[in-house]
Amino acid sequence: MPTSKSPSQPCNFVDQDQIWKVHVNVERESAKTWPQKWGFLKESYNEEKQESSKMKDKMVELDLPQHLKTRPPTPPEKYIEVRPSPPVPQTTQAFIGWRSAVPELQLERYGRVRCGKKSFLKELGWALDACC
C-alpha cells in the first residue's frame, strides 16, 4: 500500500485504504466486463491456433539439395589448441606482461596491426572534421 510522498506530511490511512478499495473494485469490474468487450479476441486467437496446427500437420518435410543443408557444428577442440601456460612469476614486477613475453601466447598472432596511411577525406580535399 503506498504511503504519502514526503515523510514530513502525516499519512491518512483511512483515505489510503479507500483509494485501495476503489482500485480493487475497478479491477474486478473490468475483469467482469472484459469478455463482453474483448472476448472476440480470445475466440479468434483459438481459431487461428487451430488453423496453424492443421497447417503444421499438412506440412511435409522437404528434401533440400545438398548445398542448402546445414552441416553439424564442428567441435571447438578440432580447430582450437589450448597449451599450458608458463609458470606464474613469484613477484608482482615479473607478473606484469609475463604471458606477452612468450611468443606463442601473444594476442597478435598474425602480426602487428597496421592502419592505412591514406585518408579518404584528404583525397577529396575536405577538412578532417567534415564527417562527424
Rank of each mutant, 00 (worst) to 15 (best):
Q50A: 10
E81Y: 12
Q16T: 14
C132K: 14
R109D: 13
L105G: 09
G97W: 05
T74S: 11
S30L: 15
L107D: 14
K42N: 07
M59L: 08
E61I: 14
R83H: 09
Q93D: 09
E108F: 11
S52E: 07
G39R: 05
H23K: 15
P76N: 08
V22M: 07
V88E: 08
C132Y: 05
C11S: 06
E47V: 04
R71S: 12
G39N: 05
D15C: 13
S30W: 04
P73L: 00
E48K: 02
D57F: 09
S100Y: 00
R112G: 01
W20T: 15
F120T: 03
K37C: 00
R83D: 09
E47F: 07
S85D: 06
P10D: 04
E47I: 02
C11P: 14
P65K: 00
L107I: 12
P73F: 08
L68S: 09
S85K: 10
Q36S: 15
P65D: 05
K58C: 08
P86L: 12
K56Y: 10
E29D: 05
P72S: 04
R112E: 03
D17F: 08
D15G: 13
G111P: 01
P73G: 02
K54E: 09
V26N: 03
D129T: 15
L62D: 06
T91A: 06
G125T: 03
P73N: 09
P73S: 04
V26F: 10
T70A: 10
L128E: 11
K32C: 09
Y45S: 01
R28T: 13
Y79W: 06
P7F: 14
D15F: 07
G111Q: 10
E27N: 09
E123P: 00
